[in-house]
Design a binder for these strands. Structure first.
Lengths: 189, 189
DNA sequence: CAACGGTTCAACCGGTTAGTTGACAACTCC
DNA sequence: GGAGTTGTCAACTAACCGGTTGAACCGTTG
């Protein structure tokens, strides 16, 4: 076991620093040098381990998607709770939401959709469809539409700009959670 | 009246080209040369008329916000219709939604909120609050929360990535409109 | 210990980019 | 028609940035 030289640790530090940098500035705005410095590493190591700035972003994004998908399984018997958990996650980890947005804006253009995400979505759509035929969920929305609505409402506060906080007294965290859960409940009614 | 030399026309062409460029690539990703070429103008003119790349973005954004705010007034007696109109707007002008997202991600960070937007939001919040005391709107959400929910749901399809279209058969335009209106109706019930 | 392979790093490179300059062209007004 | 003003543009520059290079460094293995 090596302490001073540890490629896995360096990789991990690089990945974490890159997540911060990409979340803050996007792909075009991110600076490879800043990532290297923040990771207490060298710029050349980024190219050694990941190949390019874009590939580094992919690695960051894939890691993140894998974690979120794995950590927050859908529960068709409690979709309001599912949405609330997601909203909570966005609340405690704003980088996740920002990264996802930047993926959509900067990366997904001119690119085929990520199979990882597509299959995860299909899975969720299927379980909603099943729950609908079993009568567990209402059928006034197609399963895909329902999923889109729920995921989108869960991102409510993550997509709300600073202008909002200036215009109204923003709700506290617990309230934000409850509002999301409540809105989903109404959508399901 | 001048034909060959017309500063207003040049300004307008620059603004339009910049809107496209910023919508497609964001602030960091936008290229000043591309904007100049697309506007059949010269790069120096951009700096002459707007001063800097960021100032150009501000001009684009302000113009756009002014147009949207002016063109789509809120109607507290028909919030589902209001949301549907907004959703329709996002559908026909995807640049608007992208520009707004980029504003939030790239520009709004480390900057005081735009007074223009704040006052427009306050106005809307006030009319919702008034409608609530008059019994026109339900009171289970605070006025600001209700506005946030409606505006957010209106952006449903604009925030849906390509992965979704790959996972499900996406609804047609008229259906997208109806889904938004319907979701808002449920949220209000 | 010597050869080896993975790891780390400072310095470097070439293309790109935001922003500048200074001259020229067209229109206005006297 | 010429003086002054405004609009246009090609060429320039200084800095920046993604990516490369080559050598030093260090633990391992035989």
């Amino acid at each position: 076991m090596n302490i001073l030289r540890d490629s896995d640790a360096t990789r991990a530090r690089l990945l974490a620093a890159a997540a911060d940098e990409f979340a803050a500035h996007g792909i075009a705005g991110a600076r490879v040098d800043r990532i290297a410095i923040a990771a207490n590493a060298n710029k050349a190591q980024i190219y050694h381990y990941f190949g390019s700035k874009e590939a580094l972003f992919e690695a960051v994004f894939d890691t993140l998607v894998a974690k979120v998908v794995q950590d927050i399984p859908i529960d068709v018997h409690d979709l309001p709770g599912y949405a609330a958990t997601l909203a909570d996650g966005y609340d405690s980890h704003p980088e996740v939401a920002r990264l996802a947005t930047w993926y959509r804006l900067e990366y997904a253009t001119n690119r085929s959709p990520s199979p990882q995400i597509v299959s995860s979505l299909r899975e969720k759509v299927d379980s909603i469809a099943r729950a609908q035929t079993e009568g567990v969920l209402p059928t006034h929305y197609a399963p895909g539409t329902l999923l889109a609505l729920i995921l989108h409402v869960a991102a409510l506060w993550a997509a709300t700009g600073p202008e909002f906080s200036a215009a109204i007294r923003p709700p506290a965290r617990q309230q934000r959670r409850d509002i999301v859960a409540d809105a989903v409940r109404r959508i399901l009614t």
